[in-house]
Amino acid sequence: MAHPDKRDDTRTHLEMRRAQFEATTAKIEARAGRNLFFAIGSGLVFGAVFLVCLLLIKELFVVLVAALVSVALVELASAFRVAGRRVPRVGVVLGGLTIVAGAYFWGSAGMLFGLFAGSALLTVWRLIEGLMPRYETAPRTLVRDVFSGLFTLVYVAFLASFTILMVAPEGGQWWVFALVLIVVSVDVGAYVAGVTLGKHKMTPRISPNKTWEGFAGAAVAAMTAGVIVSITALNQPWWVGVLLGIVVLFTATGGDLTESLIKRNLGVKDMSTWIPGHGGFLDRLDSLLPSAVGVFGIALALGAL
Rank of each mutant, 00 (worst) to 15 (best):
I206W: 09
T12M: 15
M1W: 14
F281S: 03
F147I: 14
S230T: 08
A101K: 01
I164L: 15
S78I: 01
D286L: 03
L243A: 11
G303E: 03
A225T: 14
V167T: 06
A19T: 14
D256Q: 00
F37G: 01
Q20H: 07
L181A: 15
L249R: 06
L44P: 02
L51M: 13
S272P: 01
W274S: 09
A26H: 10
D187M: 06
W238E: 08
Q236A: 14
S260V: 05
T137V: 12
E75S: 11
E213N: 05
I246F: 11
V92C: 13
A138I: 00
K6G: 02
G110L: 11
H13Y: 15
L179Q: 02
I99Y: 11
A299E: 06
A117W: 08
K58P: 02
L121W: 13
F113W: 15
V63N: 08
L68F: 13
A222K: 03
S148G: 13
E259L: 12
K269V: 13
P204K: 07
F50I: 08
V63W: 09
A157P: 00
M166E: 04
K210T: 02
V268D: 04
A221T: 10
M16A: 15
G110N: 12
L115G: 07
G47H: 09
L266Y: 02
V180C: 10
V240Q: 04
G110I: 12
V156M: 02
T253L: 05
R85S: 13
S260K: 05
R140V: 09
I262Y: 01
K269P: 00
D283L: 01
D256R: 00
R144W: 12
F296P: 05
